[in-house]
């Protein structure tokens, strides 16, 4: 029962770690470039979830003066603020990598990294 309780209490962290591993696995094993980018996005989301979970306080309200009336327990607003910046960074990385994939598709006519490597090795052997 205790184990179950602690799992329920820390479900955010467990979810974040699971997502991180799924994302890393996708990046490393998939040969399709688009899937690699999706894997990176999953990794990013997992860390955002992790970071925001750190700031959560049980029964806390959002940290605006007098919003919670007499309750003075607030959640920590700093991680959420940081993650806003993190999301912006993640979007720019995604945009840049997608544009690179477009260029690669124009150059090689495929999005599969194995096929690209084959084409490249053929080009160097000739």
């Amino acid at each position: 029962m205790e184990v179950l309780n602690s799992i329920i209490e820390h479900i955010n962290y467990i979810g974040a770690v699971a997502l991180f591993v799924i994302g890393l696995y996708t990046v490393l094993t998939h040969t399709n470039l688009l899937k690699k980018v999706i894997g990176i996005n999953i990794m990013e989301t997992s860390i955002f979830l992790f970071f925001v979970s750190i700031g959560y306080v049980h029964d806390g309200v959002s940290p605006i003066i007098n919003l919670g009336g007499d309750r003075v327990i607030y959640v920590n607003p700093l991680p959420s603020a940081l993650i806003l910046t993190g999301i912006v960074v993640a979007v720019s990385i995604t945009a840049y990598s997608l544009s690179l994939i477009m260029k690669l598709y124009e150059a090689y006519g495929t999005m599969d990294i194995d096929e690209i490597m084959e084409l490249r090795s053929e080009a160097t052997n000739e």
Binding site: V27, L33, K36, I93, L100, K103, A107, R120
Partner: peptide
Amino acid sequence: KDNYMASFRYLVLNT
């Protein structure tokens, strides 16, 4: 072509 591939790999690992 080589530059696109090199910088894509660099970007993925860097991220």
